[in-house]
Design a protein around this nucleic acid. Structure first.
Length: 646
RNA sequence: GCCGGUGUAGCUCAGGGGUAGAGCGUUUCCUUGGUAAGGAAGAGGUCAUGGGUUCAAUUCCCAUCAUUGGCUCCA
């Protein structure tokens, strides 16, 4: 007999060779029907794998992340099988489960899969799934494994196997299909009831541009048809929150092929909204001791040679602007730091004057690859809410923490709760990619980790993600479709002060090197507004939204009164407009609701007589009648309650 | 940049080898209406651009541009 420990701590006895499924049945038949995989002593196994020793067992259903992973990974096998049967000459490579579904990378040779072929693949998959084929693992020797794939001319699998250790190689068989596989499958294909091929994409073998390009087929599958339907509906819902769609509908920004791709045009409402965001941050920054500066959009080549950006990115990123004078070259600025370094260099500083904090809403230009451009989240011209802090090494710790406080204030004011923090350090191999001494990097990396810890951030450490000039702390937020974007960033830089020969006079009357912090709480105005749009589905906080109030006169007769109300609201700095169309009230309300205007003021005979307004809140309905004064103070209070001071 | 998809009215989209259609919006007129769509009439398109095939191309083919899902990249 063996003793099996379950997640609740209870221990049950089973005969040697009992399977996880036997354990599941001993708990309940109904539960067993939903069990699709298991983990035994932290190793993912099939529900049919015999248990030969004492240990702890966790059973997974589709509701568990692990269960989904197993389900989707198994589905990837079926996808590969379906593709192989439709395209017999295909070479399979890898097919992992991902956050939502799975993909399989295949080499199709000269053939092409396009979305017209999805239906066929889906049907084939379902047909194969209905066969209820069991997934069976078997060990193979390295030699046999290599021979198996060499006979198929599959250089990809051969490469994979060559990197594996003999004795640890397993194949997974189901039906007539065999694949190199580490394990972790559902009992049989029959529980895959709904499949959908989502898209195809080009992907390089092992993610390296120099390698062959493979076709990546993305799919998703579920144990119930209804779950697939719901998933697709969820995707449709998410698309409604897409900032590109909302930005167009709310007339915030636009693109023009004539102006150029990736170069956003801010429409009046968007520009005003952006200005409010800027003012919000300016106010907080002023309190935090920042000083605004302004620098030009271009800089001499020499500036970027000094900063090191030219050497690092000059060739493939931005082209020089030539002027009539011989040999003169300027570049569009890809970042503001070199300019700010020169501002620092404008005069000598004593340690008593530090830290200096120079802030600028600086517009920068970067030649992003055309395929990478995406709405407002990745563009070629954008404005950073940039600032550079020059301080003594002793001040670094406090300054860094203060910046974290500022970022958290910004996020809190805009109700961004689901962000994660990422500490980006050098790759462990420490390639020559990085500028600066080991010692300085060490100091900076330690400072960041300490600050993140002390501020109680929920952070992950990523090696190899640091900027070439220093380590950083980034704040990541997901968009409507679950894609992760970097917003706020705080970066320590020991390198630019060196390159620009920045210094200050210390108490010892000697010159010292200041430390520099780059930081941008929003990241960029463009990306921040994009993510904010998706988070709020266009229902911005009251203080930020383009139109706060719309006045709806019952008929033309009350137009004059509506104008009076408008005038009074504007005196209180409330953004309002009148819907003076010759439409019925119901219609005006409907349109205002759809335009997401937070407050509607209905005015007619009664209101005119009493100097009142009938208030309706977007999404919530009638709030009753208030005098104009009562309403303006109500709005003012609403705004101040949602926007705390820094 | 690479692999797929898409490009038709201001917006959302249908259509299809014989030079175009819907809904919404817009304009004009009627209606002056009290908490999510009042009625009528009209205007509006070189079917992304440039080539090719064809008697004939918006439709088929190729290229370019833009856009889109990924990959790679990302200061």
């Amino acid at each position: 007999m063996i003793q099996i420990t379950l997640p609740d701590g209870s221990i049950k006895e089973f005969h040697r060779g009992a399977t996880p499924m036997d354990v599941a049945i001993s708990i309940s038949e109904g539960f067993a029907r939903n069990v699709i995989s298991a983990k035994f002593n932290d190793i993912t196994i099939e529900s049919s794998t015999p248990l030969m020793e004492n240990g702890s067992l966790t059973l997974f259903t589709f509701n568990d992340v692990e269960g989904k992973k197993t389900f989707w990974h198994s589905s990837a096998h079926v996808l590969a099988q379906a593709i192989t049967s439709i395209y017999p000459n295909v070479k399979l490579t890898i097919g992992p489960a991902i956050e939502n579904g799975y993909y399989y990378d295949v080499d199709l040779g000269d053939e092409v899969i396009s979305d017209k072929d999805f239906k066929d693949i889906e049907q084939k998959m379902l047909e194969l799934a209905r066969g209820k084929h069991e997934f069976k693992m078997r060990e193979v020797s390295k030699e046999d494994a290599l021979n198996f794939y060499k006979s198929q001319n599959n250089q990809y699998k051969v490469e994979l196997i060559e990197n594996l250790t003999d004795g640890e190689i397993t194949f997974c068989d189901h039906s007539d299909f065999t694949d190199l596989c580490r394990g972790g499958h559902i009992p049989n294909t029959g529980i895959i009831k709904a499949v959908k091929v989502m898209s195809v994409a080009g992907a390089y073998w092992r993610g390296d541009e120099k390698n062959n390009q493979l076709t990546r087929v993305y799919g998703i599958s579920f144990p119930k048809q209804k779950m697939l339907t719901e998933y697709l509906e969820l995707l449709e819902e998410a698309k409604k929150r897409d900032h590109r769609k909302l930005g167009k509908e709310l007339e915030l920004f636009a693109f023009s092929a004539k102006v150029g791709q990736g170069l956003p045009l801010w429409l009046p409402k968007g520009a005003a909204l952006r200005e409010r965001l800027e003012n919000f941050l300016k106010k907080a920054q002023k309190k935090a001791g920042y000083e605004m500066v302004i620098t030009p959009h271009i800089g001499q080549k020499e500036l970027y040679v000094t900063s090191g950006h030219y050497e690092k990115y000059g060739e493939d990123s931005f082209q020089p602007i030539h002027t009539p004078k011989e040999g003169e070259e300027f570049f569009l600025k890809p970042m503001n730091c070199p300019h700010h370094c020169e501002i620092y260099n404008n005069k000598p500083y004593s340690y008593k004057e530090l830290p200096k904090r120079f802030a600028e809403f600086g517009t920068v230009y970067r030649y992003e690859q055309s395929g990478e451009l995406h709405g407002l989240t990745r563009v070629r011209g954008f404005t950073q809410d940039d600032a550079h802090i020059f301080c003594t090494p002793d001040q670094l710790d406090k300054e860094f923490k203060d910046v974290i406080d500022l970022v958290l204030y910004v996020f809190k004011s805009l109700s961004f709760e689901n962000f994660t923090a990422q500490v980006s350090l050098r790759s462990k191999e420490k390639s020559e990619k990085y500028i600066g001494s080991d010692e300085n990097w060490e100091k900076a990396e330690t400072a960041i980790i300490n600050a993140a810890k002390e501020k109680g951030l929920d952070y992950v450490v990523e090696y190899g993600e640091a900027a070439f000039y220093g380590p950083k702390l980034d704040f990541m937020v997901k968009d409507a479709l679950g894609r992760s974007w970097q917003l706020g960033t705080i970066q320590v830089d020991y390198n630019l002060p060196e390159r620009f020969d920045l210094n200050y006079k210390g108490a010892d009357n000697k010159l010292h090197r200041p430390v520099m912090i780059h930081r941008a709480p929003f990241g960029s105005m463009e990306r921040f507004i994009a993510v904010l749009l998706e988070h709020t589905a266009g229902k911005f906080p009251l203080w930020l939204t383009p139109e706060q109030v719309i006045i709806l006169p019952i008929s033309d007769k009350y137009q004059k009164y509506a104008e009076n109300v408008l005038c009074l609201l504007e005196n209180s700095e409330i953004r309002a407009l009148i819907d003076d169309r010759s439409e019925k009230t119901g219609r005006k309300i409907r349109d205002a609701e759809l335009n997401k205007i937070p407050f509607m003021l209905i005015v007619g005979e009664q209101e005119e007589e009493n100097g009142t307004v009938s208030v309706r809140k977007q999404g919530e309905g009638d709030m009753g009648t208030l005098t104009i004064n009562e309403f303006t103070s109500f709005i003012t209070k609403e705004i101040s309650s949602t926007l705390e001071q820094f």
